[in-house]
């Protein structure tokens, strides 16, 4: 796993999407998000608006612990060769309300 601290801030590709599900980023969406993030080689991180820490989007445990609520903007950033694709895919997934 790439350690984000080694990356220059300028290398990150970023995006945002609002969580639509009335119960927030609960277990099933969290699983979908981590599964999708794992399909990219880039380091992918997420942060709920208001939280200070970025968490590894490929870690089911970390994403599930975020407990991001309904209506909260989710910040997504990626760093690596396919970073732009990763951010676009994750933003789209959140905007589609995780295909539920």
């Amino acid at each position: 796993m790439t350690d984000p601290i080694t990356h220059d801030a300028a290398d990150w590709v970023a995006g945002d999407a609002v969580i639509l599900d009335p119960t927030g980023l609960h277990a099933r969406p969290a699983v979908k998000l981590t599964k999708l993030a794992k399909t990219f080689a880039a380091a992918v991180e997420v942060r709920a608006d208001g939280d200070e820490r970025w968490v590894n989007a490929k870690s089911p445990n970390s994403v599930m612990k975020m407990k991001a609520a309904h209506g909260v903007p989710l910040h997504i950033r990626a760093n690596g060769d396919d970073a732009a694709d990763a951010v676009a895919a994750l933003v789209a997934l959140v905007e589609r309300n995780f295909d539920v």
């Binding site: 981590t34 599964k35 089911p60 599930m64």
Partner: peptide, 24 residues
């Protein structure tokens, strides 16, 4: 089981699957 399967779905090794499930 859910955490292990989520980790496994990305092609992770058994050791990685184990770590994710046990850290939950």
């Amino acid at each position: 089981a859910v955490m292990a399967a989520t980790e496994a779905a990305g092609g992770s090794s058994l050791a990685e699957v184990r770590a994710t499930a046990e850290d939950f």
